[in-house]
Amino acid sequence: MRLRDLLVLAAFLASPAWAISPDSTDADAIMREVEDRDLGDRGTSRMQIVVTDKAGHSRTRTVQTRGMKFDGGRRELMLFDSPAELRNAGLLSVDFDEGSATDDQWLYLPSMNRTTRIAGSEKSSSFMGTDLTYADMTKADPDDYAYTMVEVNAEAGGEAAWLIEARPVTDKAKEETGYLKTQVWVSKDKLVPLQAKAWVIAGKKLKYTEYKNWKKVDGVWIAHETVVRTTRDGALLSTSVLTTSDVRFGVDDVTEADFTQQRLERGL
């Protein structure tokens, strides 16, 4: 058995699913397990992002990603594959677990043939123009939220689930998410969010997120499709579909050297 397999087995045995009973009504404990779940390390994937506005105009981006944990956070490299005009541009980001607003990004711009540091966006602002915010893309700190069990025996996507309501209680969380509250359907089987409904304060919008097409990749549950729809009073304002493919974890050639400016500038 290789070291990687041992790690995967260890991760499985330590899986939170064993720690929480399906009948549990402890929303806080469930959400802590969800937030603490393993998101994989030294991973590579391919992601297609399609954003469609209310009028039906769509924009598609395809990126190749590499991710790696480090002590206190996570690094991510995204290299643009398409559209052609953006090919070889890249984004290197560092996300600190502490959720500091100073998370940083470096963007390689081929036209200038140099890397530019762009300051981390406000967490409540849109991730690459999608319906997701940077806060949606990063782990939430359970201490910033008050969780309430809404329904123990809920169902989502054909799976048994807990329906839990999360309200930000700290100013930091309120500001970062821009949400009044979120309802999350948590899979009892996988301890992952299956879907979520968020109440967006600005403009009183609702955001519906579905995490679909779950597959276990190298011991890590990964949603291969994320669909986010923003609505107001029943009208669809925008939709984002993020499709992930070719997911792998524990990739040997994902190393510290991948998360440097030199690698960013080398492109695909």
Binding site: I118, S121, S238
Partner: peptide, 28 residues
Amino acid sequence: SQRGVDDTLLVFENAGPDELAEFVTGDY
């Protein structure tokens, strides 16, 4: 250059996507 425009917009897409949406449609 055109590539310069594309790159500059990419910067803004990441740094201020909400502001960009006030001026252009999602597909430009």
